[in-house]
């Protein structure tokens, strides 16, 4: 699917760019964003190292296992192909906790740690497992319990009004994500053998 979407986005961009007269801006954006992508990745090194180091301590002290066990009833249903006491569950739970609290900086390293541990269980290394897709979908639907600081800064006093609406909307999108993953993972076109 990503093959078509990725190519489609670029092809549509070039065609639309020609018709709207923005073709130079399209070229500039392509070159500029390639640079931005590297800057973002390099910028992640420090924060990644910090949280991965702290996570290693949490793991060595058995904290991750304790947390994972506490949320077992939920995680076995969402990630049935991950063994109950696997470290991936601990990382997944911590990533979600960080997301809920709006700690984006901590959430990404924890999420990538979880992906690494899920990859250990993956028999086909270039293809996402059901658990990986579930984890990703929950992440992209953003389980957030506080209004982001940027939004608070922008909205001022009105920010408190959108507190409840944000939680309800995020809840709706997370439920939709979980249901969609469960439905789609059974479809042949998305199966491990056939999907792209």
């Amino acid at each position: 699917m990503l093959n078509y979407i990725w190519f489609g986005m670029m092809a549509i961009s070039v065609i639309a760019g020609i018709f709207t007269g923005n073709i130079e801006a399209v070229t500039e954006a392509a070159i500029n964003m390639a640079k931005v992508a590297v800057e973002i990745s390099i910028g992640l090194i420090g924060i990644m190292a910090l949280w991965l180091g702290i996570m290693k301590i949490a793991e060595a002290s058995g904290l991750i296992r304790i947390i994972a066990r506490g949320l077992n009833p939920i995680t076995v249903r969402l990630f049935p192909d991950v063994p109950e006491d696997h470290p991936a569950i601990g990382s997944i739970v911590l990533n979600m906790a960080a997301n809920m609290l709006g700690l984006g900086n901590a959430a990404t390293p924890l999420g990538l740690k979880a992906m690494e541990e899920l990859q250990e269980l993956n028999p086909k290394k270039d293809t996402a497992t059901n658990s990986m897709v579930m984890f990703l979908a929950i992440n992209t639907s953003s389980v957030q319990l506080i209004v982001p600081a940027t939004v608070v800064a922008l909205m001022g006093a009105t920010a408190s009004q959108i507190f409840l609406t944000t939680i309800l909307a995020t809840l709706a999108s997370t439920i939709a994500a979980i249901v969609m993953v469960k439905i789609l993972e059974k479809m042949k076109r998305f199966s491990v053998e056939d999907a792209s």
Binding site: A128, N139, S141, A177, V192
Partner: peptide, 28 residues
């Protein structure tokens, strides 16, 4: 998120991830 999370472990075949993610965005 898809690029970073899947990219970090070298996954190129994302299966139903994008379809589910974009549906969730629309519902949100």
């Amino acid at each position: 998120v898809l690029a970073v999370y899947f990219g970090s472990v070298g996954i190129t075949r994302s299966r139903h991830a994008l379809a589910a993610g974009l549906t969730a965005d629309a519902v949100g």
